[in-house]
Amino acid sequence: MTQVPQNLKYTEDHEWVRTEADGSVIIGVTDHAQHQLGELVYVELPDAGRKVARGDAMAVVESTKAASDVYAPLAGVVVEANPALASQPELVNNDPYGEGWLLRLRPDSATDLAALKDSTAYTQLLAAGD
C-alpha cells in the first residue's frame, strides 16, 4: 500500500513538501512516484543558490527505464541538495519521505504553500488514477 503521510503537502506531479522551522521547505517525491519509476539509478539535483519559478524542471530522477523531471512546487531559491543521493540514489526508493529527500528550498512566498494539496486530496488523486 502506498504511503501518504498526513503532515506533508503534495503536488499533482507526485512531489511532497514539508515546511521546516526556519521557513524553508524540504521537497521529495512520493512513495507512489518511486514505485512508478522503479529502482532509481541516478538523481540529478540543482546547485545551491539556483532560483526556480513554480513549475520549473529543477531535478531529474532516473531509473533504467525512465527519466522524469521533478518540477518546483514553489518559487524560491535552492538552499541545498541532498548530498547522499549522488552515491545512493536508492535512498529515494527505500525511504522517500526521509533519507531520500531531494532538496531544500527557500520559498519566495509562504502563501504559495497553501495552494498545495493536503494528504486527503492527494490520496483522492491517487485513487482517481487507479
Binding site: 539509478v41 541516478y42 532516473e62 531509473s63 533504467t64 527505464k65 525512465a66 527519466a67 523531471d69
Partner: peptide, 14 residues
C-alpha cells in the same frame, strides 16, 4: 546498454 535514460527513446524531446 546502460545510461539509456539520456537517450531519445526514453527522454524524447529532452
Amino acid at each position: 546498454l546502460t545510461l539509456q535514460a539520456r537517450e531519445q527513446h526514453i527522454r524524447r524531446s529532452k
